[in-house]
Amino acid sequence: MIEVDLAQSSVRALNARLHQPTAQTNQLYWQVLNPNGAHAIAVGLTQPLQIEIKGHAGYYCGGMNAAATVIVDGHAGTGVAENIMSGIVRVRGNASQSAAASGRGGLVVIEGNAGARCGISMKGVTIVVGGSVGHMSAFMGQTGVLVVCGDAGPNLGDSLYEAEIFVAGTVASLGADCTETDMTASDAERVAGLLGRAGIKADAARFRHYGSARRLYNFRVDHTAEY
């Protein structure tokens, strides 16, 4: 395991080192000490490395991640795993606003709570939140799945396209064009599978299912191919 102490090294130097390894690398396991809320830790990774950050991370931690596993052993600031492409970003504590914003793929796990706008403009990412999410989560979500084991704040799924949302607790309010849909046996099975992948214990049978009513503005799912 390679240790990098951010009390000694800059984030820029750390990221440059994390961008060096090729697909055949042996340098798979990394530990980052003393993050102290620094921004942009472990961003833009493209190889299947595993990076564990021992402490609280600042903004955009694990942003644009592809293939790597980034673990924050603490809280994460604004925009953790923003634009994630693949791989896993896991936050053991809470995440601030806009977690997994615009994520195109991969898995983002927030073991604690996520703040406002979790999954804003999500485009294929899977997000599992062990606690609750703040207001306007999954705003304009285009595709992907948001699973919330706790409660959701006001205006959940506002202006939703084709992303799906599952919430076990209460929903303060649904945003424009977001509606509750059927929770089928196969949905419950999918949720159970995602919880298993995320390593979060929750009863899949308790979740309710939300999606787009497809009535907003001029959007018609039948015309998807033309958009």
């Binding site: 102290n36 809320g37 921004h39 600031g77």
Partner: peptide, 13 residues
Amino acid sequence: TEYRAIATLPNAS
């Protein structure tokens, strides 16, 4: 505004 300011305090962890 950001945690990194709080991180400078003794006992912040």
